[in-house]
Write a protein that binds this DNA or RNA. Structure first.
Lengths: 253, 253
DNA sequence: CTGTTATGCGTAGACCATACGCAGAACTAG
DNA sequence: CTAGTTCTGCGTATGGTCTACGCATAACAG
């Protein structure tokens, strides 16, 4: 009944196809005055400068000296633009692991690479992700992560799960630290002060009888000391990698 | 220079204070026709029914038979309302761990409790979280999680890190599965079909030479088999808990 | 030269959050 | 009982958002 719109598989958003270089320009009609990459770059520039909230179609168009509606000839919707922004925002993958590195060193490097990107471009965390990755660079990251696990005894599905585990952790950690950073920028306080102010607030709110464990954490001064966020990061990452290591050893017998 | 607006600590949004029961009604003026909890409940009802995107001030007001601007007498901004929605959306914490359970069983139960909430209310994942938790129920969840680690050799800061690690994982896992579910609802396909359609799309896009590891994953049929999402969940959770266990053993000497 | 097709983009519609100000209700002081 | 004060409900208005639609025009094919 339904006519096939494509020769194989489900339809892909036009801008995604062009990101994979699967789209030749039709011979007729006037030359396009812009290009998808130019639009995406402009949008990324706006996000880098003023955050994701500043990225509106009109603002991006202004950045390019074009009219708002002109963008819609290249991008199907704002969501599509956001997807492409994520792709170029992450940038090229960190590359395959060094040959002398074992899987653990490789994945550590991989995780740090994403960590660094997210610290630089915290707006990536605010993009509502609407599905699994299908853009070129995103899949490049996946590929490089999978290669780190190449020599291991894990099954393919397990490798995938491990990567998901790590990406999720990196994103989560970056979200938390970026929130503290944004909070300090909003209140004009030092990043350390934000945490201790939070600790004071919680201490004032909670009843030590109903929240004994939380009270103990607070009196231990956990939130007062402003420890290096990177230490926090490596702590969690090492816990995860320890868990993966346990699995690999078990699989090896 | 700056006059103290409060007797202790930083200022708190009014609606948060009322959530902690720290606000008595002023004796003058007409009776309030609504209440903060009623507004938040209405907003949660809207989100449950039509998703977070449907939650607008006018929609919530309509739900209550009130005018849009009336809400602003109770809630300082939409962001404040969202914060309160998260609090009641999570609901009461799962309670302290069973006495006979060890830390691992306790945390597993704790993680599953959050898992269940997020599966029921996937809109919670779409709320842009704007800071560390300060609402009553949120801190209740923290408390219960901390209690699971009460008997262990971990330091207070380490306990906190472990909890952050687990919550982050649960949220991340829930985000992924809810995206698949939303994708299937949008396309009208079975959840299993969504994954295999994704696999087909990726297979069509990538070059096996440039993406060998990814190609191997695809040909292994990882994305075709629609495995139980719960299996995926316990896999990652067990990895993390294995990592924590390794740390606890190391601390114990 | 004519027909076809794609582009640039102006207009307009349907939402959204929210600043501001006014009418009136409920209380207190006299 | 009255006047003053304070708080509520909410109408109006502003400025922002995305994007559907349609028209003029540019570039090519025949």
């Amino acid at each position: 009944m339904a006519a096939k719109t494509d020769d194989s598989g489900p339809v892909l958003p036009p801008a995604i196809e062009s990101a994979w270089g699967l789209r030749e320009r039709p011979p007729k009609g006037p030359r396009p005055g812009m290009s998808v990459p130019a639009i995406v770059d402009a949008a990324v520039r706006v996000a880098d400068a003023d955050g994701l909230a500043a990225v509106s179609m009109s603002r991006v168009a202004k950045e390019l000296g074009a009219a708002t509606m002109a963008l819609y000839r290249y991008v199907g919707s704002k969501d599509e633009l956001l997807m492409l922004m994520v792709d170029t925002g992450y940038g090229p993958s960190p590359g395959p692991p060094n040959p002398q590195d074992d899987w653990r060193a490789g994945l550590t490097r991989w995780a740090w690479a994403e960590h660094d990107v997210l610290r630089q471009r915290s707006w990536l965390l605010h993009v509502p992700i609407s599905g699994p990755p299908i853009t070129p660079q995103q899949l490049g990251w996946m590929e490089d992560g999978l290669r780190c696990l190449d020599g291991t005894t894990l099954g393919e599905a397990e490798k995938m799960s491990v990567l998901l585990l790590i990406t999720g952790y990196v994103r989560n950690e970056a979200t938390l630290t970026s929130q503290v950073a944004e909070g300090s920028r909003a209140s004009g306080a030092e990043p350390g002060e934000v945490m201790s102010a939070y600790g004071q607030t919680v201490a004032r709110l909670i009843d030590p009888v109903r929240f004994p464990a939380l009270h103990r954490v607070l009196t231990a001064g956990v939130l007062n000391q402003d420890d290096d966020p990177d230490d926090e990061f490596v702590f969690g990452l090492d816990r995860i990698l320890d868990g993966v290591e346990a699995l690999i050893r078990r699989r090896a017998g």
